[in-house]
Nucleic acid binder design. Structure first.
Lengths: 216, 216
DNA sequence: GGTCAAGAAATTGTTTACAATTTTGCTTAA
DNA sequence: TTAAGCAAAATTGTAAACAATTTCTTGACC
């Protein structure tokens, strides 16, 4: 209803893609749920071609899967795939952590200190949602700081693909208490500008994630 | 129905995507060359919608880049990006090599032995194109053998993105003589079913690639 | 002679329409 | 009652048409 007289700063395709992606990530669309193009058209107020292109993009991102002549559905990530994703993340995040440790600036140091406080506080107050948010911000910041756009971009996709499993895991009782020290170790290694320690701490953390997933 | 001419096993979209991708990989389209949709339509005999979707897919694959309202052009990978790509490959291929070393079967052993012979022969005869082909087959086989579809898929994309630089590198004088022992070391580590050695040999090889790229 | 502006051509972004395929529901026969 | 078959509806795949943007050309003005 709110007629957006606004200028076209972003394309309809990007808007539609983001909207569908968010719906998947926030659980509005469930795994294996079929996404019918016409329905999405009405919901988003764009034409079928745009929706179609958006779904194509999301297929490349691995968030939906394409069945020939039968449309697309939300991809259901099995536990085995989720572990593969974390293994891949371990390989790439350790690379990024190593790079990031070599590019610490005063501004980055401040940001890391701030994130550290945020994590400690969230754990103390038992605010799991806040902890999860802080944790994601930390991951994102390390990616940015690494300056390694190739692996950073891949990691973003992997994060989205594994989001559901990660989310479930983060709300398991006692999970925050175990992972928080691992996160703090990563931050401390970065603050010391120690690439080896940063890499080791990252691998250790993600091995912890895998272990927790396995006995779930 | 069964006796139909049965032409449509693959969609027009996939065909067009593969055709354009091959043209880029084989150098028919040069870096920074603009790809005009209508031209591709005539060349491929399909409609603009198909070409458009194909270009969208290739954008996700990182082979072309999309300039808003100005179409797409073949992405030019800088030397810095090429190094990033090899670094990323090192992280993921070492993971795959480790996994592959734990899944050696008699059939795999045969295939590896065959690939080893092929590499030795190509180097002896100085057939650089053949060596390059054997080397790519080895990489692909390790990906398959690893059973790690998540990183295998990413590696395929990275291989395509970095293909041009890799290709040029492989034809530098003395390059084969240096990289061949590294490849053989990877194969030998796999034949010994030694994950640590396989990982180390893979990292060593790709560090060699990076070093060769840097003083190019 | 050079610079800027206006209009035309070229190209992309989006919508709509059409064709092919799959799914669904109804009818009919065993 | 159930299963097979055929027709209709729903949905996806493809093509064509329209709109908006950018780029190129041309010509006037300083």
């Amino acid at each position: 209803m709110t007629t957006e007289t606004a200028p076209k700063q972003t394309s309809a395709l990007d808007d539609a893609t983001s909207a569908i992606r968010d719906s998947i990530l926030q659980g509005e669309f469930s795994p294996h749920q079929r996404l019918v193009e016409v329905d999405l058209c009405e919901q988003l107020g764009v034409s079928r071609a745009v929706v179609r292109n958006a779904l194509l993009k999301l297929t490349s991102e691995g968030l939906v899967e394409h069945l020939p002549n039968r449309g697309v559905r939300v991809r259901a990530i099995t536990i085995e795939e989720a572990i593969e994703i974390v293994e891949t993340r371990a390989a790439l995040e350790s690379l990024c952590a190593r790079k990031a440790a070599q590019r610490i600036t005063p501004v980055a140091r401040e940001r890391l200190t701030s994130l550290r406080e945020g994590i400690v506080k969230a754990v103390e107050t038992g605010d799991l949602a806040e902890y999860s948010a802080q944790h994601q911000k930390l991951d994102q910041f390390i990616r940015e700081l690494s300056g390694h756009s190739t692996s950073a971009q891949i990691l973003e996709r992997l994060q989205a693909q594994g989001a559901r499993h990660q989310f479930r895991l983060s709300f398991r009782p006692g999970r925050a208490a175990q992972s928080a020290p691992e996160h703090l170790a990563i931050i401390d290694a970065l603050l010391l500008e120690d690439p080896d320690a940063a890499e080791a701490a990252t691998v250790a953390h993600l091995n912890g994630v895998i272990a927790a997933m396995c006995n779930g």
